[in-house]
Write a protein that binds this DNA or RNA. Sequence first.
DNA 1: CCTTGAACCTGCGGGC
DNA 2: TGCCCGCAGGTTCAAG
Length: 275
Amino acid sequence: MPELPEVETVCRGLEPVLIGQVITKVDVRRKDLRKPFPKGLKTRIESAKVTHITRRAKYIQAHLDNGFVLVIHLGMSGRIVFHPADYKPQTHDHFILHMQDGQQIVLNDPRRFGIVDLVAVDDLESHALFSHLGPEPLSNGFSGPVLAQALAGKKAAIKQVIMDQTIVVGVGNIYASEALFMAGINPEKPAGKVKADQAEALVSAIKKVLQKAIKAGGSTLRDHRQANGELGYFQHSFSVYDREGQVCITCAGKRPIMRITQGGRSTFYCPTCQK
DNA sequence: CCTTGAACCTGCGGGC
DNA sequence: TGCCCGCAGGTTCAAG
């Protein structure tokens, strides 16, 4: 469940449950996900207290009182769920934090594209997972001029470029289609041909769609639930994503929403509204 | 440098 | 019912 709004929603759900709590026991149930679990993970975080939670791009960062930060990426299919003390691990429960109040924080990830890492807080910015990342989309560091500059001269399709985490972080396959629709830009347009005014519109659209999705608790695909059991509901607000063949909500024209493949991923757009 | 495609995994739904 | 195919919200690495 992983684009920025979903990860942000998870972080907000984790805060009241984790902050101030000591991790009493850690269960690492296999040797790796997309990467190996870090060496000494269990011994280095057991008995540590969670001080605060941050997010960078699609990474969850749980800061501990021993100078380490527990980093979790959910990949494509990862989810974090809270369970009571008597919960028994199920299939694809790969990593479990037992907290001092008895609650279990369970990382379940069927496809195992997720990552768990442990980083010294002083090394966070320079760590390989983070050092190459572009600006946060909701920060002032992401603006029309900044994006226009990053797009200059690029031949690749704009859809694929805004999903490039070195350009801007947090935009995944759903919100890329949604933002391009909102900005009226054809996803196949070469990035370098997106000029200042369209870049400005695209930045506004990305910020707007991500903010709206966060307010909605993210999008819930394939029956997924947030850690607290609540469902995100932004999927009901999709304008184009997963709406192939349906009528465009803006132009209601004769040409329906199209689905194309870019970089192996589905893209949805309105051929009338997006130029 | 760039772009493209495949690779990593499991599960689910549709078509036959 | 069962099998095969395509598809799924991400990232990385090799090949051209």
